[in-house]
Amino acid sequence: MAPPDDLVARAQAGDQTAFRDLYRQHVGRVYALCLRLTGNSGDAEERTQDVFVRLWDKLRTFRGESAFSSWLHRLVVNVVLNERRTTGRRERRVALAEDPDSVVGAQHAAPLHQSAGLSIDLERAIAELPEGAREVFVLFDIEGYAHAEIAELVGIAEGTSKAQLFRARQLLREKLAG
Protein backbone atom coordinates (compact mmCIF):
# COMPACT_ATOMS: atom_id res chain seq x y z
CA MET A 1 0.00 0.00 0.00
CA ALA A 2 1.23 3.50 -0.81
CA PRO A 3 2.41 5.87 1.92
CA PRO A 4 -0.50 7.75 3.54
CA ASP A 5 0.48 11.14 2.12
CA ASP A 6 0.67 9.69 -1.36
CA LEU A 7 -2.70 8.04 -0.90
CA VAL A 8 -4.27 11.30 0.20
CA ALA A 9 -2.79 13.15 -2.76
CA ARG A 10 -4.00 10.53 -5.23
CA ALA A 11 -7.44 10.42 -3.67
CA GLN A 12 -7.56 14.19 -3.84
CA ALA A 13 -6.89 13.89 -7.54
CA GLY A 14 -9.94 11.64 -7.89
CA ASP A 15 -8.22 8.24 -7.73
CA GLN A 16 -10.92 6.00 -6.31
CA THR A 17 -8.55 3.09 -5.79
CA ALA A 18 -6.40 5.28 -3.59
CA PHE A 19 -9.48 6.40 -1.77
CA ARG A 20 -10.45 2.77 -1.09
CA ASP A 21 -6.99 2.18 0.38
CA LEU A 22 -7.46 5.27 2.50
CA TYR A 23 -10.74 3.79 3.70
CA ARG A 24 -9.02 0.52 4.63
CA GLN A 25 -6.40 2.42 6.63
CA HIS A 26 -8.80 4.55 8.60
CA VAL A 27 -12.08 2.70 8.82
CA GLY A 28 -11.24 1.15 12.20
CA ARG A 29 -10.57 4.51 13.84
CA VAL A 30 -13.58 6.09 12.18
CA TYR A 31 -15.92 3.24 13.12
CA ALA A 32 -14.66 3.21 16.72
CA LEU A 33 -15.40 6.88 17.12
CA CYS A 34 -18.80 6.59 15.44
CA LEU A 35 -19.65 3.59 17.60
CA ARG A 36 -18.76 5.34 20.82
CA LEU A 37 -20.49 8.59 19.88
CA THR A 38 -23.70 6.92 18.72
CA GLY A 39 -23.71 4.01 21.16
CA ASN A 40 -25.17 1.76 18.52
CA SER A 41 -23.48 -0.42 15.94
CA GLY A 42 -26.16 0.06 13.27
CA ASP A 43 -25.94 3.83 13.53
CA ALA A 44 -22.17 3.59 13.68
CA GLU A 45 -22.07 1.70 10.37
CA GLU A 46 -24.30 4.30 8.71
CA ARG A 47 -22.28 7.20 10.07
CA THR A 48 -19.02 5.53 9.02
CA GLN A 49 -20.31 5.28 5.49
CA ASP A 50 -21.53 8.87 5.65
CA VAL A 51 -18.10 9.97 6.84
CA PHE A 52 -16.30 8.41 3.89
CA VAL A 53 -18.80 9.75 1.38
CA ARG A 54 -18.37 13.18 2.93
CA LEU A 55 -14.61 12.70 2.95
CA TRP A 56 -14.68 12.04 -0.81
CA ASP A 57 -16.40 15.39 -1.31
CA LYS A 58 -14.30 17.32 1.16
CA LEU A 59 -10.93 15.77 0.46
CA ARG A 60 -9.85 18.48 -1.94
CA THR A 61 -10.18 21.04 0.86
CA PHE A 62 -7.54 19.21 2.93
CA ARG A 63 -4.37 21.30 2.63
CA GLY A 64 -2.08 19.34 4.92
CA GLU A 65 -2.03 22.01 7.62
CA SER A 66 -2.64 19.27 10.20
CA ALA A 67 -2.18 15.52 10.22
CA PHE A 68 -4.67 13.82 7.96
CA SER A 69 -5.84 11.59 10.81
CA SER A 70 -6.61 14.65 12.99
CA TRP A 71 -8.46 16.33 10.15
CA LEU A 72 -10.45 13.15 9.48
CA HIS A 73 -11.17 12.81 13.18
CA ARG A 74 -12.74 16.25 13.25
CA LEU A 75 -14.76 15.37 10.17
CA VAL A 76 -16.11 12.25 11.92
CA VAL A 77 -17.20 14.24 14.95
CA ASN A 78 -18.89 16.83 12.74
CA VAL A 79 -20.73 14.23 10.66
CA VAL A 80 -22.02 12.36 13.72
CA LEU A 81 -23.06 15.48 15.61
CA ASN A 82 -24.64 17.08 12.54
CA GLU A 83 -26.63 13.96 11.85
CA ARG A 84 -27.93 13.99 15.41
CA ARG A 85 -28.86 17.68 15.14
CA THR A 86 -30.58 17.43 11.77
CA THR A 87 -32.57 14.30 12.33
CA GLY A 88 -33.24 14.98 15.98
CA ARG A 89 -32.98 11.32 16.50
CA ARG A 90 -33.05 10.05 20.00
CA GLU A 91 -30.53 7.67 21.20
CA ARG A 92 -31.43 4.23 19.99
CA ARG A 93 -29.58 2.04 22.28
CA VAL A 94 -30.24 -1.62 21.83
CA ALA A 95 -30.98 -3.64 24.87
CA LEU A 96 -28.11 -5.98 25.57
CA ALA A 97 -30.37 -8.92 26.18
CA GLU A 98 -32.23 -8.45 22.92
CA ASP A 99 -29.30 -8.00 20.51
CA PRO A 100 -25.97 -8.83 22.03
CA ASP A 101 -24.14 -8.44 18.70
CA SER A 102 -25.03 -4.80 18.40
CA VAL A 103 -23.53 -3.94 21.72
CA VAL A 104 -20.54 -1.72 21.69
CA GLY A 105 -17.43 -3.71 22.31
CA ALA A 106 -18.88 -7.03 21.31
CA GLN A 107 -17.00 -6.99 18.03
CA HIS A 108 -13.56 -5.85 19.12
CA ALA A 109 -10.99 -6.89 16.63
CA ALA A 110 -8.25 -6.42 19.18
CA PRO A 111 -7.11 -9.65 20.78
CA LEU A 112 -8.50 -10.34 24.18
CA HIS A 113 -6.14 -10.02 27.05
CA GLN A 114 -6.41 -9.81 30.76
CA SER A 115 -8.38 -6.59 30.78
CA ALA A 116 -10.57 -7.46 27.83
CA GLY A 117 -13.51 -8.20 30.03
CA LEU A 118 -13.28 -4.82 31.71
CA SER A 119 -12.94 -3.11 28.33
CA ILE A 120 -16.10 -4.72 27.05
CA ASP A 121 -17.95 -3.80 30.21
CA LEU A 122 -16.69 -0.26 29.88
CA GLU A 123 -17.77 -0.06 26.22
CA ARG A 124 -21.21 -1.24 27.18
CA ALA A 125 -21.41 1.19 30.04
CA ILE A 126 -20.36 4.04 27.77
CA ALA A 127 -23.01 3.04 25.25
CA GLU A 128 -25.64 3.16 27.94
CA LEU A 129 -24.75 6.66 29.04
CA PRO A 130 -27.24 9.44 28.27
CA GLU A 131 -26.48 10.95 24.90
CA GLY A 132 -25.06 14.27 26.07
CA ALA A 133 -22.90 12.71 28.76
CA ARG A 134 -21.65 10.02 26.38
CA GLU A 135 -20.60 12.52 23.72
CA VAL A 136 -18.63 14.62 26.17
CA PHE A 137 -17.04 11.58 27.80
CA VAL A 138 -15.98 10.09 24.45
CA LEU A 139 -14.60 13.36 23.17
CA PHE A 140 -12.80 14.35 26.37
CA ASP A 141 -11.63 11.15 28.02
CA ILE A 142 -11.16 8.91 24.99
CA GLU A 143 -10.39 11.31 22.15
CA GLY A 144 -8.59 14.00 24.11
CA TYR A 145 -10.56 17.09 23.08
CA ALA A 146 -10.53 20.12 25.40
CA HIS A 147 -13.75 21.36 26.94
CA ALA A 148 -13.64 24.50 24.81
CA GLU A 149 -13.44 22.41 21.64
CA ILE A 150 -16.23 20.12 22.80
CA ALA A 151 -18.39 23.11 23.63
CA GLU A 152 -17.92 24.43 20.10
CA LEU A 153 -18.41 21.07 18.42
CA VAL A 154 -21.48 20.02 20.36
CA GLY A 155 -22.95 23.49 20.67
CA ILE A 156 -23.03 23.68 24.43
CA ALA A 157 -21.42 25.91 27.05
CA GLU A 158 -18.00 24.92 28.33
CA GLY A 159 -19.44 24.59 31.83
CA THR A 160 -22.07 22.19 30.51
CA SER A 161 -19.33 20.10 28.97
CA LYS A 162 -17.56 19.86 32.34
CA ALA A 163 -20.81 19.00 34.12
CA GLN A 164 -21.62 16.30 31.55
CA LEU A 165 -18.17 14.82 31.97
CA PHE A 166 -18.53 14.70 35.73
CA ARG A 167 -21.93 13.07 35.35
CA ALA A 168 -20.64 10.55 32.81
CA ARG A 169 -17.71 9.47 34.99
CA GLN A 170 -19.95 9.14 38.00
CA LEU A 171 -22.47 7.01 36.09
CA LEU A 172 -19.71 4.81 34.68
CA ARG A 173 -18.15 4.23 38.09
CA GLU A 174 -21.50 3.21 39.47
CA LYS A 175 -22.20 0.87 36.54
CA LEU A 176 -18.76 -0.77 36.63
CA ALA A 177 -18.78 -1.06 40.42
CA GLY A 178 -22.11 -2.89 40.22
Binding site: Q16, Y23, V27, A32, T48, Q49, F52, Q107, A109, I142
Partner: peptide
Protein backbone atom coordinates in the same frame (compact mmCIF):
# COMPACT_ATOMS: atom_id res chain seq x y z
CA UNK B 1 -9.54 1.50 31.88
CA UNK B 2 -10.41 4.19 29.37
CA UNK B 3 -6.77 4.41 28.40
CA UNK B 4 -6.77 0.73 27.57
CA UNK B 5 -9.75 1.00 25.23
CA UNK B 6 -8.75 0.17 21.64
CA UNK B 7 -8.36 3.18 19.36
CA UNK B 8 -9.59 1.19 16.45
CA UNK B 9 -12.54 -1.14 16.09
CA UNK B 10 -13.15 -2.93 12.85
CA UNK B 11 -16.80 -2.78 11.76
CA UNK B 12 -18.59 -6.14 11.80
CA UNK B 13 -18.88 -6.09 8.00
CA UNK B 14 -17.15 -4.45 5.07
CA UNK B 15 -18.76 -1.03 4.67
CA UNK B 16 -17.02 -0.20 1.39
CA UNK B 17 -19.76 -1.73 -0.85
CA UNK B 18 -22.19 0.78 0.67
CA UNK B 19 -19.79 3.65 0.13
CA UNK B 20 -18.50 3.07 -3.40
CA UNK B 21 -21.83 3.48 -5.27
CA UNK B 22 -22.50 6.69 -3.38
CA UNK B 23 -19.13 8.04 -4.48
Amino acid sequence: AVGRLPRSIEPPRDLWPGIEPRL
